[in-house]
């Protein structure tokens, strides 16, 4: 059974890209498309989640993801609580399950969770009350589905024919939940060729099962690429010996203007943020005309609104009686 769907096949939680299916993924992108013009209006708000409570539960630092989830919930008129775990009872040893039960006792409707352990979002979705929706905002090195969705959304805005695309993902694939979710989403959308570029130490053990072409030479991996995605070095997830210094990494795997010239002249450059300038990407590339890095941030709001609207709409267990 797919833990993301209810018994009628409706999207209840968003935990990972795997198991969503192509149609549902495209539904999310289409809904986000309809929500995008909202920012041009006098009142940047829709009433869909009016009276609902969304809790942002972040066990890892985050700027973009947490803020855009918060903004998305507020634009849908939800009430938002941000639980700063650094200053919460979790620091005093409260278990995940106890935290969940307490939030449920406060009658929250949606939980947005980021956690350093893979599987944390599944844990919450499995144990939460049936009327609570859980959205994965990044769990360990497992998945970051809304990031992958906003990346697909941004690619589709510029290059809608996925079958014709060569997408190159460069960097720390081993520790990257973003790369995993991106690869899953690109495969669902039928991307022509998916390449990953990384040193051996930063490739996951199961790389052969991901359906991608592996390059350790960045120049070869970039050749004629239509989309170039650079990833942040996840220093917080690395053991000391995984990696040489930042300068050496940039020399071998950094995206410089000279290297980008090997890709298609209209290749788009993406990065999920936060960027380490001069480590995985050169400043003039990050700020250059081919970069869509800030568009990704803007699109993140509409995509997260779409996910919230689609998971929170429709009949929910236990609610039928309340409406009488």
């Amino acid at each position: 059974m797919n833990p993301q769907l209810d018994k009628d096949g409706n999207l209840r939680h968003l935990l990972e890209i795997e198991g969503l299916g192509r149609d549902r993924l495209i539904d999310i992108l289409d809904t986000a498309e309809s929500l995008l013009p909202l920012t041009e209006r006098a009142v940047k708000k829709l009433p869909l989640l009016r009276g609902r409570t969304v809790v942002n539960l972040f066990y890892e630092p985050s700027t973009r993801t947490r803020m855009t989830f918060e903004l998305a919930a507020k634009r849908l008129s939800a009430d938002v609580l941000n639980l700063d775990v650094e200053h919460s009872s979790a620091r005093k040893g409260e278990s995940l399950l106890d935290t969940l039960r307490n939030l449920e006792a406060m009658h929250m409707d949606m939980l947005v969770i980021r956690h350093p352990d893979s599987g944390a979002a599944h844990f919450f979705a499995t144990h939460a009350d049936p009327q609570v929706t859980v959205l994965n905002a990044g769990d360990g090195s497992h998945a970051h589905p809304t990031q992958a969705l906003l990346d697909m959304f941004t690619i589709r805005q510029h290059k809608p024919d996925f079958a014709a695309l060569t997408v190159t993902i460069i960097g720390d694939i081993a520790h990257s939940r973003v790369a995993r979710s991106q690869i899953a989403a690109l495969r669902l959308l039928g991307a022509g060729e998916i390449r990953v570029v990384a040193p051996h130490t930063l490739l996951p053990a199961d790389i052969d099962r991901l359906g991608v072409k592996v390059f350790t030479d960045i120049d070869r991996g970039l050749r004629d690429a239509d989309v170039v995605i650079t990833l942040r070095l996840q220093r917080e997830r690395m053991q000391g010996a995984d990696l040489p210094g930042s300068q050496e990494y940039f020399r071998h795997y950094g995206l410089s203007a000279e290297r980008l010239a090997l890709a298609s002249p209209v290749a788009m450059v993406m990065h999920p943020g936060p960027i380490n300038r001069g480590v995985e990407i050169a400043s003039d590339v990050a700020d250059g005309p081919q970069s869509v890095i800030l568009q990704q941030v803007t699109n993140g709001i509409a995509v997260r609104m779409a996910v919230m609207a689609l998971t929170m709409g429709g009949e929910r267990p236990g609610e039928r009686d309340l409406r009488v």
């Binding site: 289409d30 309809s34 013009p37 869909l48 689609l310 709409g313 429709g314 009949e315």
Partner: peptide, 14 residues
């Protein structure tokens, strides 16, 4: 909305 959800093929208002 809370009964039937969102139709993904919404035409944006113009």
């Amino acid at each position: 909305f809370s009964r039937i959800g969102v139709n993904p093929r919404v035409q944006p208002s113009s």
